[in-house]
Amino acid sequence: MNETQVYTKLYDVFDEFFGLEQSEVVPELTADQVDGWDSLNHIRLMLKIQSEFGVKFSSGQISSLQNVGELANILVAKT
């Protein structure tokens, strides 16, 4: 998948989870800027993304992600 395809899919997940608009899901977005993106929901979100994209993250990747851009990069590389 290219970056555009990855973001298109991510929009849906972020909408479902946090009710975010497409314009809000930008590479610089981090967890503490989003209402409800706590550590529990972070794990739920990662599990959901794994099953949506058919990929597997290591626990290291899950715990050290800095922002949406980094997540998208991993997904582009893996899909």
Binding site: S39, I43, R44, L47, S59
Partner: peptide, 13 residues
């Protein structure tokens, strides 16, 4: 992985 991440005893699945 989930145990190490969050001390969860079983897979969320």
């Amino acid at each position: 992985g989930m145990w190490h991440l969050a001390r969860v005893s079983c897979a969320n699945r």
